[in-house]
Design a protein around this nucleic acid. Structure first.
Length: 254
DNA sequence: AGAACCGCCTGCTTGC
DNA sequence: TGCAAGCAGGCGGTTC
């Protein structure tokens, strides 16, 4: 989410009010995306990890970057490696670059309520606690379930649970109401800090201008298996949950 | 209904 | 060095 929010803020600055002269597809997998011509980008929004460009004719371009998708401001318009799709503006182009080709672009005619429960926008803690907290899944799996909470990815889920002192292995049903409140509070703090740092460039995340984020410096557990926990001096472990790596400190996360 | 997997793709890293 | 296996930011679909 912080990475997506970073792009939204930058896109809002760069292309809101500007005219999309045309769009172009470079990847067969994305065939079928309608071409947009001569439409103004009215605003840029986010819902969960979906970037939404609202056009002046009411249509919306929704872009989901999945794992490796990135958006780059490309003034020269030269073709970039792994370039999949682009929007052409008078001053330059915005390129969707995605080595793994998981990213999606949709053009929607009407306003669509995505129904996403975005922690920083319209999340209802009480509704969540009524509907979700008796589930059998682990708290970490639940935090990453986009139907339950939109916007918490693997890195941030690990960091949030570490700060909350809750083990990722704990069943959701065994998390108390006050622990949930703490998790929500810390989740917002972790995500906001991630946004202020323009995202986590632990791998190849870059912002609209190709710059690294700074949030990797603030990580306390993600990617740190075998390292010492700065909170308690324990040793950070890596385990697998639902096919994803979880990093945590068994000593201070219970 | 809910939970546990699988598939989508490619490229980089690790270990033999 | 070479090659195969394992791993990676996410989410929707299928199966059980």
């Amino acid at each position: 989410l912080p990475e997506v929010e970073t792009l939204c803020l930058q896109l809002q600055q760069k292309i809101a009010g500007k005219k999309i002269l045309s769009t172009k597809i470079f990847d067969d997998k994305l065939d079928g995306i309608a071409t947009v011509r001569n439409r103004i980008v009215a605003s840029v929004r986010r819902s969960g990890k979906t970037i939404i460009l609202v056009l002046d004719d009411g249509r919306r371009i929704s872009v989901h970057l999945r794992m490796t998708g990135r958006l780059f401001w490309n003034p020269s318009g030269e073709k970039l490696p792994h370039g999949r799709w682009r929007m052409v503006f008078e001053e330059g182009v915005v390129d969707l670059v995605d080595p793994r080709r998981f990213a999606t672009v949709k053009i929607e005619k009407d306003r669509i309520d995505t129904g996403e429960k975005d922690l920083l926008l319209d999340f209802d803690e009480n509704a969540f606690m009524t509907k979700q907290t008796d589930r059998k899944v682990s708290v970490k799996t639940l935090l990453m379930d986009p139907k339950a909470i939109a916007g918490i990815g693997n890195i941030y889920a690990c960091e949030i649970l570490h700060q909350a002192g809750v083990s990722p292995l704990r069943r959701a049903a065994a998390v108390t109401a006050s622990e949930w409140k703490k998790i929500f509070r810390l989740a917002r703090r972790v995500l906001k800090k991630g946004i202020e740092s323009r995202g986590t460039s632990i791998s190849d995340w870059r912002d609209l201008y190709g710059r690294k984020g700074e949030n990797q410096k603030a990580l306390r557990v993600y990617g740190k298996a075998g390292c010492t926990c700065e909170a308690c001096g324990g040793v950070i472990c890596r385990i697998k949950q639902g096919g994803r790596s979880s990093y945590y400190c068994p000593h201070c996360q219970l």
